[in-house]
Every structure is written in C-alpha cells, then in structure tokens.
Design a protein around this nucleic acid. Structure first.
Lengths: 240, 240
DNA sequence: CGACACTTTGACTGTAGTCAATGTAAGTGG
DNA sequence: CCACTTACATTGACTACAGTCAAAGTGTCG
C-alpha cells in the first residue's frame, strides 16, 4: 500500500491551501508549528485504497475526493460518504475503520500517524471540539442521505447528487456563489460510483443523466464535465 | 406541547435506571449532584412530537423508544434514527434540529434545558467527550443503515431490522445473551413505522413478515410481540 | 491500429409500489 | 351485551420503476 503512494514531504502550513478551513484553523501559529511536526503530505492515485492498516489513518484532504464505502458479502456496494477538501478523514477512537476509504480521484493528503495524532488531541482540546462539530455535520449529512436512499426516485436522487456536488466541488472557470444561479463542475465519480452512492445501477444513473440533458436541466461538456444553467430548476427536481 | 406532557419531577440519580449507562456515567457522585439540579423527568405519550420549540431539547431516554424522522414536501417520510434507553437525544451545537423527534412508544425522559446543559458541557469536559463518542457511534449506525437502504432487498431489510431490535430492545421474559440463540421482544413500531425506517411500504413489510413466519424464522405472539427461535437463521437472511 | 475503460442505449424482467378489499382487536356508547 | 367505530394489519390484483442482460458507442492510451 504505502509503496504505491508517492513522495512524502513535511507539511508547510504557511502556504497550505486549507490552513484556515481545515481542523488546523482552531490552532494558533505556535500550536500549529508543534502539530506540524507529525504531519506528512501524501499523494494517492485515483482508485487506490487508503488502507486502514497503514499509519495513514488520519488526514486532512488537500485535493481530490475520497469515497467511503461499505460492501456486502456478495459484492453489493454502497458509498456512505464523500469527502472533499478541506475535510478531515479518519474514524477516531476506534480500532478498526467501519468502512473502506478509497481515492475517487487523485488525492493529496496531509496525513497524521495515529499515535501522534491522539497525543495532539489530548494536548489541544480545541482540536477535539472541532472534530466533534465535524462529526455532527457528517451525521446530519448521512441522515439526509438516508432520506434520499429510502424515499427518493431515481430522478430525484440524481438531481440531488448533482446539486450536492455543485455545492461542494471546487468550481472551474467561474466562481459559484449563492447569488449566481449557474454552476460548472467536474464530476469526481464514474457512473458506477454515482450508482453506488445513490443506491442505483450505473445504467439507471446514465439514463437519468440523459433525461436531464434532454430536458435542458444540465449540459455535458464531456462525461465528467457538467454545466447546470439553472440551479433552481435542478433544486426543484431534487425535492429536498 | 408542554401541556400534553405529563408530570414533571426532579431527577433522583441514586435510583436512576440508567445512572451507570447514560452520559451521566462519566460524572462523579459530586458532579452528578450538580448536574442533577437542571434535570427534570418527563413522560410523553406515544405518537407525541418531542418539540424542538420547548426546552426539552436534550434528554436521556429512561424508557420507551424515540424515532427521528425526516419528511419531504409531499409527505414521504423516512425514519433516520431510533433511540432506546439509555441513549441521549438532542442535536447539540445547532440552532434547529435537522429532524423531528417523536415518541414511538410511551417515553420517559430525563430532560435538560438547553442553556443549562450547555453550561454543564463546558464545566465537565468529560461530558462532551462522552457525547462525541456517542455521535461517532450514531454516525457508524447511520452509515450501516445507508447500506441497508441503498442495497438490501426487502427481505434482508426486514430481517436486519428485527435483528437490530432484538439486540437493542429490552428483552421480555428471559434474558438474552449472545450465548443464548433465542430472543423474544416487543416491536416498538407499527408496520407503517417499520416501512418508514426501512424505505419500504407498510404492505411490503407485512408481506415479508408473513414470509418469515411461514418460513419458521419468526413467531408472532401478536402483531407486536415476536419470538425468534433461531437468531443465527435470521442473521443469515440479513446479509449483514 | 487495437485494447481498454467507461458510457449509452435497447429489450425484457422482476421486485416492490399502488389501490382496494377484507380481517382483527380494542375501545365506546346505547 | 352487542353494534359500531377506530386503528392497525393482512391479502390480492395489477402496475410501474428500476434492475438485468446484452450490444454498441466513445474516448484515451500504448
């Protein structure tokens, strides 16, 4: 695992893209310098499992998208979480991760070894509080997704997912703000992954995307690159 | 709301059924005495909404079952969490609850007013840590349920739910331990509620229950009272 | 060019949803 | 005590949405 992950360099917090957004934001410059001693940057290629048996258990996501998946014995798979920069990843206070973490795209992490991180948690209580707030938000998102998986139609699910990604993925070309009713973004997932996140098959996802395209709700630059000319129209379809 | 909820008495922790299992377990006798000043017992009849606009935002569940639900504009509903004693309920650090809490059965709570509780959180850091651990477990459960909602068949869903309730509901008549491959319990939910938890209709739940009965996997004493003669067989069907 | 990974599209199927009728049990009031 | 109501559950007939299986299309890379 570790051998497949490329170079490892110490973190430089002063130029870090997520310095003021990740969990680090609760630390002062001096505290951050201490914290920084245990941090290591890692690059992970798309498709690679971010193994739970190595020391890369905890990390800030600097770039790319990480998917968290659960799988049944016969191979049926469900994505139970998607993480974007500046999210923190890793199940703290547990011996084993209850799910697999996998790089959906090429990913850059600012990783912390398990032991060292737990020392820092005790040293800086603000860090634990921040992680608690993160976890509460993740729980809210998970429950939002339960509503989608349990009660929404295929069309509503695909619309909801596109909306969520439009909000969370870094927008390319032009900035997206709530006032601008327009969005362009790159899907970080294949059709199969989209299906695994939505509790659908890849064929159903593909058909719904085609429907949305025909209805003029979205435009496909290519398979991954999407333009939503009218976010409000997409929101309508999402029924959320 | 508050008027529909019956008598309100101060808590007596020394005889409390959840003293050593609820979040209170992290407090010493002396700390508990302080904490106790803000606690009030409340009884809530089945079906009653545990409103977010009263001061009963935070509580230990002493008895009964609470369901957390989310609803779409057109009325489609999904149960996103079930809470049993000695669970703690309430979304801390948020202005509004992202879901409705409703008494699935008659419920007894040990409730704390929002402001007072937040003072206690700051005074006793162990309390916050304990709530964090609770939240992490709830997140794991929510993700487990996402797998069920996204990928399991109706049969597997019903089997999974029965298994979950067999494990969490207080068992009646004879004690259930992991060694004893037998369980008897009372369903805290109607067929409609079971459907809302499983992302199914009540008719489908009913049909699957009938199938399980015909297959000899479960026995129905009455609509609510269930005997599982062979838990391993039920586990098999749950595919979890 | 061919190989490969991913996506789209089509034809058909099956699982769970919908709509409707019937069954059951507990509670109410004449 | 017995009709009647009410709430909940079961069962049946039919439907529809998404799944399955299969073939063809697209784009990238060596």
């Amino acid at each position: 695992m570790a051998s497949d992950m490329s170079f490892e360099v110490p973190a430089k917090c002063d130029v870090c893209v997520v310095r003021h957004k990740a969990i680090c934001s609760v630390l002062s410059e001096a505290e951050l310098k201490d914290f920084n001693h245990i941090a290591r940057h890692r690059s992970i290629p798309a498709g690679q499992v971010i193994a739970a048996d190595t020391d890369i258990v905890f990390a800030n996501i600097l770039n790319g998208v990480v998917k968290l998946t659960k799988t049944l014995a016969d191979g049926r798979q469900q994505i139970v979480g998607l993480q974007f920069p500046p999210d923190f990843m890793g199940r703290i206070y547990a011996k084993e991760s209850p799910y697999f973490a996998e790089a959906a795209t090429d990913v850059e992490l600012c990783a912390f070894p398990k032991d060292g991180f737990e020392v820092m948690l005790r040293r800086y209580p603000g860090l634990e509080h921040r992680l608690f707030e993160n976890t509460l938000d993740e729980l809210d998102s998970a429950r939002e997704w339960m509503l989608l998986l349990g009660r929404k139609t295929a069309k509503e699910r695909v619309a909801s997912l596109l909306l969520m990604i439009a909000q969370r993925a870094p927008n390319i070309g032009c900035a997206h703000t709530p006032e601008i009713n327009f969005s362009r973004f790159s899907l970080p997932l294949t059709r199969a992954d989209l299906g695994d996140y939505l509790g659908l098959t890849l064929e159903t996802v593909s058909r719904q995307m085609t429907n949305l395209k025909k209805a003029g709700i979205i435009e496909l630059v290519d398979n991954r690159e999407i333009i939503v000319p009218d976010l409000a129209a997409l929101e309508q379809l999402a029924s959320s």
